[in-house]
Amino acid sequence: MSAAALAAALRIEGLRLRRSPVAVLAAVLLTALVPSASVGAVALARSPHAAAPTAAKLAPYAAGDLAATHLTVCAQVLGVAALVAGGFVVASVFGRELETGTAGALFALATPRAAIALARCVVVVLWLAACVVLTVLLTVAVSAVVATGGGSGASGAWREAGRAVVSGLLGVGLALPFGAVATVTRSRLATVGALLGVVALTQVVVLLGGGAWFPYAAPSLWAGLGGPAAAAAVGVPHLLLSATVGPAAVVVVVAAWHRLTDV
């Protein structure tokens, strides 16, 4: 695959992603819902009017530095939200043409299918990574407005912001294997089904206590979704294992598109 072919594929796929309703919707939902949910959950946890079951559920957010808690919630939500949003985008990017038969037009071109598949992975990762960073910045901004006058442990808040970015980026990488699922199944619906299945499986694995070494569970556990003890059990090796899923998926997807036949 030549650099010129990859550059051409990147230009095309960049344009296509900007025009993709699924990618735009994913960006809007991530950047709007996650900051709102982060600040809203903490507000609810600290409200004297919260119903008892809600207050019990949100008890971990009821105390502590306000800004840091906003960003802790952001980190916990963003890991899963980036995975789900990314899964939908990847299902659309790799599944639609195979489902409609348009992928047949990508054969016997000067720009090889492997270059097109690699370019798709790159633009999807860049798009979602930008969404993750923007989401965290928006949460910081909204938190700063809400926390005005309430005091803030700045260093704690920025540490949690960093954790949110890492958690979101890991979620983006974990979405990439669904490009391989879309390629194999040639169906967007089947890919989304597999995505939901993995999210459900993650819950089961965490319940059974095996989360730290399960790549889809480690980021959220590290962000504190399973409590302080579960978070402490997640170390660098567990996070590195999660981080290798994305690059490995890129290799698999590119190879699958290179070998694609019977389209």
Partner: peptide
């Protein structure tokens, strides 16, 4: 070549 669905993206 054009065989079946062409090299056309509906969103562009």
């Amino acid at each position: 070549h054009v065989v079946g669905a062409p090299l056309v993206q509906p969103e562009l």
